[in-house]
Each structure stands twice: as structure tokens, then as C-alpha cells.
């Protein structure tokens, strides 16, 4: 056995054991047929292909053929939510407090560095309208990176940034939105862009320049995220129930995937429930941090746990499922 064959066999561990026994030699044989003479290591593209194929096969063996359509459905809802929130936050960023009055640091005409990330989310909505699929995923990845980069950028420059309870749900939504579908009906493509614009107009009404300057901590702004959590949860439940009635399980998978971003959007009320100290507007930092860690650990674990349970159930009820039909 050559080194290359041994390494391909190692990567084959991504596949379920029974599938490996039935198909492993054939798959590795095809990789070896395609490999250039003298090659000793699988290419990164081959490794990614094997890992993707293994994951797909595990999903299939678990009887969860609706999972990938569920991922795409969750991505659509997540992108819509993320761009809508970005629309609100752009308006907020345009309402910096007058320094003389409040002494709050600002970023020139903007409240904080957040304007960079929110603009990138607007571009992601535009990409979704013009080029769904790969370009949308790239735009979402860029917006996601810029959102995450606000934390070190704020620390390094000393400039203000949006609080973590605003950034974390945006990152959670962005990670889910990376599963955006390649093909979408034309009527759906512009929805995130329209929603972001609409949310911006609504935000402009809520944060009237004549009333007061805005910050992520003012009483009209703090309820935005919990309200978004309720709306997304209600939408996900409706999709799961509506599609489930037709025997379509992708709504259920989408709900399971969206629970993590929903938990992050609801960070303040969840942390408030944990916080024993009296809460005025925003719960204490420690309560928020503990809740965020809890949501980030429990939420993503629900999907593999459900898949494992489905897989176990499928093995018990249909022991031959997942094998190559002869």
C-alpha cells in the first residue's frame, strides 16, 4: 500500500463505517486512478471533496435527506434577518451624540466602527439581489469577517464599536447565511435588500434626530434584538409547521439551525432571567457572557445530537439503509 493510498483511506473516515466497507475501496481506487504519478499527498481539493462526501453520506444514512434544503431555508431567513438588522444599525450609526453634550467618543459622523460592517451587510443584500449563490456567499463571508474584526479593531484603535450583544447575533446569523442557496426564485432575491431599506426607514422613525442622539444602549434600541428574536422564532415555527403538514421536514431542520441565532438575539432577556442583580436596561456583562457561552455551546450541539438520534433510529428500524443497493 502506498503512502497516498494510506492517506486517502485515512480521509475516508469521514464516511460512515458501513458505507466505507461497501464503497471505500472503489472510491479510493478512483482517486488513485486520477492521481498524477509520484503524488504522495491528497490535494486540499480532494480532501475537501472527501469530507463533503462523507458528511453528505452521514446525513443520508441518518435518513435526513431534508437537511440540506433545511440549511438553505435557514440561510435565507438568517440573511433576511441580518440585512434587516444592518439596515436599522446604519440609521443608528448616523445619529452620533454631540460630544459637548454627552462626552461619548464617536467615529467622526458615525456612532462607531460598526458602520463598516453594516455597510458590508448592505452589500451582501445587494449581491443576493444581483447574483445569488457563490457571490452572495462571498459577500456574506466578507460581512461576517468585518463584523468579527470589529472587536480587535476597537481594542487596537481605541475607537467605539457596537457592543458584543449586537455583534454576536449578527455573527450567528452570518454563519447560518453562509449556506445560501445557488438558485432562488427571482421574486425572493431582492427581499433582503427591500427589508434592509424598509428597516432603515423604520429605524429613522424610531430614532428621530430631533428627539435625541442614538446609541446601542438607548431604551428604544435595546428592544430591537429581542423583538427580532421573537419574529425569527415565530417565522421558523410557522415554516416548520406549515411544511411539516405536507410531510416536508426542511422547516424542522431550519428551526433547529435557527435556534442558535435566535438565542443570541434574545441574549438580553435570557441573561436578564439569569442575572440576580436588579436590571435597568441591559443585564450585567457577566450574565450576558455566561448566557452567550451557554447558547453558543448548546445551540450548535442540537443539530449533531438530532442527527445521531435519527441515525440510531434509522439503524434500529431499517438495518440495511445506507448500503449500496445490489
Amino acid at each position: 500500500m502506498t503512502d497516498l493510498e494510506r492517506r486517502y483511506l485515512r480521509l475516508l473516515a469521514a464516511y460512515p463505517a458501513d458505507y466505507r466497507r461497501a464503497r471505500g475501496a472503489e472510491i479510493v481506487g478512483t482517486y488513485l486512478d486520477l492521481a498524477a504519478p509520484g503524488r504522495r499527498w491528497p490535494s486540499p481539493a480532494d480532501a475537501a471533496d472527501l469530507l463533503r462526501g462523507g458528511l453528505r453520506q452521514r446525513v443520508r444514512a441518518a435518513g435526513a435527506v431534508d437537511l440540506m434544503p433545511g440549511v438553505r431555508l435557514a440561510a435565507t431567513v438568517a440573511l433576511l434577518t441580518a440585512t434587516t438588522l444592518a439596515g436599522v444599525w446604519v440609521v443608528l450609526e448616523l445619529r452620533p451624540a454631540p460630544i459637548a453634550g454627552f462626552g461619548e467618543p464617536t467615529l467622526g459622523p458615525f456612532v462607531s466602527l460598526g458602520i463598516v460592517a453594516w455597510t458590508a451587510w448592505g452589500l451582501a443584500a445587494l449581491a443576493h439581489a444581483l447574483a445569488p449563490g457563490r457571490w452572495t456567499r462571498r459577500a456574506v463571508a466578507l460581512a461576517l469577517l468585518l463584523t468579527a474584526a470589529l472587536v480587535p479593531a476597537g481594542a487596537l484603535t481605541g475607537l467605539p464599536r457596537p457592543p458584543l450583544f449586537v455583534l454576536l447575533p449578527q455573527i450567528g446569523l452570518g454563519l447560518v447565511a453562509l449556506g445560501a442557496a445557488d438558485r432562488l426564485p427571482a421574486s425572493l432575491r431582492a427581499v433582503p435588500l427591500i427589508a434592509a431599506g424598509g428597516a432603515g426607514l423604520l429605524g429613522a422613525t424610531l430614532m428621530s434626530r430631533n428627539m435625541f442622539s442614538a446609541s446601542y444602549y438607548t431604551w428604544t434600541v435595546v428592544p430591537v434584538l429581542p423583538t427580532a428574536a421573537v419574529v425569527v422564532l415565530a417565522l421558523a415555527l410557522l415554516l416548520a409547521a406549515g411544511l411539516g403538514l405536507r410531510g416536508d421536514l426542511r422547516g424542522g431542520w431550519a428551526l433547529l439551525i435557527l435556534l442558535t441565532p435566535v438565542g443570541l438575539l434574545a441574549l438580553q432577556p435570557l441573561a436578564g432571567a439569569l442575572d440576580t442583580a436588579p436590571v435597568e436596561v441591559v443585564p450585567s456583562w457577566t450574565a450576558l457572557a455566561a448566557t452567550a457561552v451557554l447558547v453558543a455551546l448548546v445551540g450548535p450541539a442540537l443539530l449533531p445530537l438530532t442527527l445521531a438520534a435519527r441515525s440510531h433510529w434509522a439503524r434500529v428500524t431499517q438495518p440495511r439503509r445506507g448500503h449500496l443497493p445490489q
Binding site: I27, T30, D46, D49, L50
Partner: peptide
């Protein structure tokens, strides 16, 4: 056709636009 033959044939039929990798092909 076997896997390797199929990959070559699909590449030829599509004038090189579609190149399947084994993981994708067997899926």
C-alpha cells in the same frame, strides 16, 4: 462505465466545463 471512466466522459461531454471529483460523483 466505472468511476474513473465516468469522470473522464463527463469532462469530455461538457468540453471541460464540468469536472466531477470522486466524492461528488459517488454521492
Amino acid at each position: 462505465l466505472h468511476g474513473y471512466g465516468l469522470i473522464g466522459e463527463v469532462t469530455a461531454l461538457s468540453d471541460g466545463r464540468v469536472t466531477l471529483r470522486p466524492g461528488t460523483l459517488y454521492g
